[in-house]
Amino acid sequence: MQNLKLTLTGLTFLGLATLAGCSFPGVYKIDIQQGNVVTQDMIDQLRPGMTRRQVRFIMGSPLIVDTFHANRWDYLYSIQPGGGQRQQERVSLVFDNNDQLVGLSGDFMPGTSREQEIMGSPADSTSPASTMPEQPAQPQQQAPQDEPAKPGSTEEELQREIDSIRTEPVPTPTPIDTSSD
Rank of each mutant, 00 (worst) to 15 (best):
R114H: 05
I30W: 01
E115V: 07
A149T: 00
T112V: 08
D74E: 10
G84L: 04
F68V: 06
P169F: 12
E155P: 00
L4K: 15
V170Y: 11
P175S: 11
E147Q: 03
Q135R: 10
V55K: 02
Q138K: 15
I64K: 07
P62R: 06
R47M: 11
E161C: 00
G103S: 14
Q80S: 08
T112H: 02
R90D: 00
A137M: 15
Q2I: 12
I43M: 12
L93Q: 01
P171V: 09
N71S: 14
F95H: 08
V94I: 10
V37I: 13
A20M: 01
D31K: 06
F108Q: 01
K150P: 00
T39V: 03
M1T: 10
L11G: 05
M132L: 15
L19M: 05
P81S: 10
S113F: 02
N97W: 07
P128Y: 10
M109W: 05
Q33T: 13
Q135Y: 13
S153Y: 07
L93K: 03
P169R: 13
D41H: 04
D181C: 00
S180N: 07
D99Y: 14
N97T: 12
V170M: 13
D177A: 07
G120H: 11
F57V: 06
F108Y: 09
P169A: 13
K29Y: 02
Q88A: 14
D124S: 11
D163Q: 12
Q159C: 00
L8A: 15
T178H: 09
Q140C: 10
D66W: 08
I79M: 14
E89G: 00
V102N: 03
L158E: 03
L6R: 15
F13N: 02
T67H: 09
M132V: 05
R52S: 12
G106D: 04
T167N: 10
Q159I: 04
N98L: 12
S130G: 10
Q33E: 13
S113V: 03
Q88P: 01
S78A: 11
Q142R: 14
V55D: 02
I162E: 03
D99S: 15
N71R: 14
K150L: 09
D74R: 12
Q88W: 07
G106C: 08
P151I: 01
R72K: 14
M42I: 02
T39S: 11
L11P: 00
A129D: 09
G60A: 10
S127I: 09
S23Q: 12
Y28F: 04
G82L: 04
A70I: 11
I30Y: 05
R72A: 08
G21K: 01
K29M: 05
E168P: 00
T167I: 09
G82C: 05
E115N: 02
S121D: 06
V55T: 08
G106E: 05
F24R: 08
G15Y: 00
G10T: 15
E117I: 06
R114F: 05
T9C: 13
P122S: 13
M50G: 04
T112D: 06
Q142G: 12
N36D: 09
E168D: 09
S130P: 00
N71C: 08
Q85W: 11
L8F: 11
T51L: 06
